[in-house]
Design a protein around this nucleic acid. Structure first.
Lengths: 194, 194
DNA sequence: GTACATTTGAAACGATCATTTCAATTAAAA
DNA sequence: TTTTAATTGAAATGATCGTTTCAAATGTAC
């Protein structure tokens, strides 16, 4: 009986991610979201709840995309160390392609802007961080079995180190938009594992 | 002849830094600054210009404090590697002491929130980043002369790596508020230099 | 004590914020 | 075609935003 939702939900979220990522949560107005998505104000509230609800849905979308990118790399890579290398290179390329147009990793931005003001978001970010560490731990563990990664430190220690370094890279990249420098940083980060 | 400024400018800036650092620029209202500093709204505009002007003054204050902390460490340290170690430990302690109360490094927050929306701020942040890299480069260079730091990579490469890692540590620390984990990260970061 | 330049307090500015309201429109089901 | 329930558009809500205004209060120099 009812009229059905006409817009493409995926597209709307995608556009919302772009907007939030480029302006941050607090600087993004509902009007910005209306303009970016093409939806009417009331449609956004009808379909997504509130600005914060939509933002959190964007975080999940960004997380899903990130994980898919990593899984694709894992499938294509022939060794653990090259998986890690490619993950870092992907992030490097990501930072560089943003050509001064955006503010590093969406999660880093979210962490500094929201983590200590919204419990729902802090919870999400911690869970995301833990799962990223777990993901790296699995890769490193396998690499240590293959002897492609040294055993100076255990997989768990290397994992939290790598996640931290990756976050640093994505912050640094905002101010240091230079291919050669970022490449050098990645090399140095990964040299610990050799 | 004139009535003279009665408030303590240092104190006011200090309180403004706390406020901006804890809420970010966009979430901090002029009323928040009035409450935090005890100044009247008009006094703030009279003495500091605008909200943005005050924010930039806060960035300079934070930069000055950070540099003073590092200089104190440099004077007290007996070797380059221990200088670097202490800088990282200071930042670790800083993150931990903030007990879920604040959002990592003020500069990281500023980078993700403001770098691509305010040219004056982007300029400041890049200059700050360059000077931090230079500072680390000098320390590493000296360490390499003393043979307390290896020469696998040159001082400049280690410097940008260390600055990046430090930024990562201060982001990670917001979500990973655990002494043992942070200590392990710092150890791994510094192990490259051995 | 008077004159003067500045700070101060309170109110007001117009703009914009996130959200709500509600009548008109729409399209599927009867 | 009529019924029906959701979507849509536009206007309005009350709150808050950064900033300005201006008269009163203040403290220094004469």
């Amino acid at each position: 009986m009812p009229k059905v939702e006409t817009f493409n939900r995926e597209f709307v979220i995608q556009e919302a991610v772009k907007t939030f990522h480029s302006k941050g949560y607090n600087l993004t107005s509902m009007q910005d979201l209306v303009d970016a998505t093409g939806l009417n104000r009331s449609s956004i509230y009808n379909s997504f709840g509130s600005k914060l609800d939509l933002y959190i849905e964007c975080l999940h979308k960004y997380q899903k995309d990130t994980k898919e990118d990593i899984e694709e790399i894992m499938v294509k890579s022939y060794s653990s160390i090259s998986t890690i290398q490619r993950i870092f290179c992907l992030n490097m390329a990501d930072v560089l392609s943003q050509n001064n147009n955006d503010n590093g990793c969406f999660f880093n931005q979210c962490t500094t802007e929201m983590a200590n003001h919204e419990d729902r978001i802090k919870f999400f970010l911690i869970e995301n961080q833990v799962s990223m560490v777990q993901l790296f731990e699995d890769i490193v563990e396998q690499g240590q079995k293959n002897e492609s990664i040294n055993k100076n430190k255990n997989a768990s220690e290397y994992a939290i180190y790598l996640v931290t370094a990756l976050q640093g890279l994505r912050i640094s990249g905002v101010l240091m938009n230079d291919n050669k420098q970022l490449k050098s940083i990645v090399e140095t980060i990964l040299s610990v594992l050799e």
